[in-house]
Amino acid sequence: MNHSASPSAPSRRTRRAVLVSLAVLGLAGTASAVRRPLLMAAPRCLAGRWHGCYDTFNGVVLMMLVGLPLAALVVWALAHRRRAAGVTSARRRSLAEVGMAYGTVPMVWLTLMPGPGAGIVPGRVSLVPLRDLVTMGPVGIGGNLLIFAALGFFAPIRFAALASVPRILALGAGCSMLVETAQYVLRLDRVSSVDDVLVNATGAGLAALASRRWWATTRS
């Protein structure tokens, strides 16, 4: 008699319960930490005002949270349409596509927000690697890691050709270079730094590793 399979199911359920509990606690802690600044931006966002909502970090994050039900509806609609057409892995493909767009576009929007001297201060470039990491601080480094994290997480799930960490690193670096170039050309009063490219690409690569369980199957 094979007894090896029976303990595995409860252990998997236990691990899932622990992971779900940790995720809920993490979301609750994050919501509690950002509740006050998000509520400060809520009146302007709900009134449809550009200034104070879409040109602020708090406003963009608030609108991302408000738009989550709509994003979930789009995932459901795409998956339903694909299942009706007989497409395999319809839910996974739909979730990956919406996740890439929903998690990346707002983050890029934040990086392209103009500073107080936009249009006046000439573009600045920092090409010495690792020099700007000291001035970024933990918050700056964390934010840069998240800019293309959704792209790195979902792209290998959706596209088998990108199911490789080096390719995701290259994709993250290329996208980051486009953003840094736009900051310089548009004179947004931001520093176009090579360290931003390095940290952005690292965030995409780490996110790809986090989703490896799913995109490895897609690649095979």
Rank of each mutant, 00 (worst) to 15 (best):
M1H: 11
A5N: 01
A5T: 04
S6G: 08
S6P: 06
P7A: 01
R12I: 02
R15Q: 15
R15I: 14
A17T: 10
A17F: 05
A23H: 00
V24L: 14
G26R: 06
L27T: 02
A28R: 02
A31I: 04
S32I: 11
A33N: 10
A33P: 03
R35H: 15
R35V: 08
R35D: 08
L39V: 08
M40Q: 14
A42V: 02
R44L: 05
A47K: 12
G48N: 10
G48Y: 09
W50H: 14
H51Y: 08
G52W: 06
D55K: 11
D55S: 08
F57G: 07
N58C: 13
V61C: 07
V61P: 04
L62R: 02
M63L: 10
L65Y: 09
V66D: 07
L68H: 03
L68E: 12
L68F: 10
L68T: 09
L68W: 14
A71Y: 14
A72Y: 13
V75D: 02
V75M: 06
A77G: 15
A79G: 11
R81F: 10
R82H: 13
A84R: 11
G86M: 07
V87A: 15
T88C: 08
S89R: 12
R91C: 04
R92M: 15
R93P: 03
A96D: 06
A96F: 01
M100A: 04
A101W: 01
Y102E: 00
G103M: 00
T104E: 02
T104I: 01
T104G: 02
P106D: 05
M107G: 03
M107S: 11
V108I: 08
L112H: 04
M113S: 10
M113P: 08
M113A: 14
G115V: 06
I120E: 10
P122L: 05
R124N: 00
L127K: 14
L133G: 12
L133P: 06
L133I: 15
V134L: 13
V134D: 09
P138Y: 10
V139P: 01
G140D: 07
I141E: 06
L146C: 14
L146R: 01
L146H: 09
A149M: 07
A149Y: 04
L151V: 06
P156M: 03
I157N: 01
I157M: 10
F159P: 06
A160Q: 01
A160R: 01
A161F: 10
A161N: 08
A161H: 05
L162Y: 00
P166Q: 00
I168G: 07
L169V: 03
A170S: 02
G174Y: 02
L178E: 01
V179W: 00
T181L: 15
T181M: 06
Q183T: 07
S192A: 13
S193C: 09
S193W: 01
D195S: 05
L198N: 13
N200I: 05
N200V: 09
T202C: 10
G203H: 12
A204H: 03
A208T: 10
L209S: 05
A210K: 11
A210I: 12
R212D: 08
R213K: 13
W214V: 15
A216W: 02
A216G: 07
A216V: 04
T217S: 13
S220N: 06
S220H: 02
S220W: 02
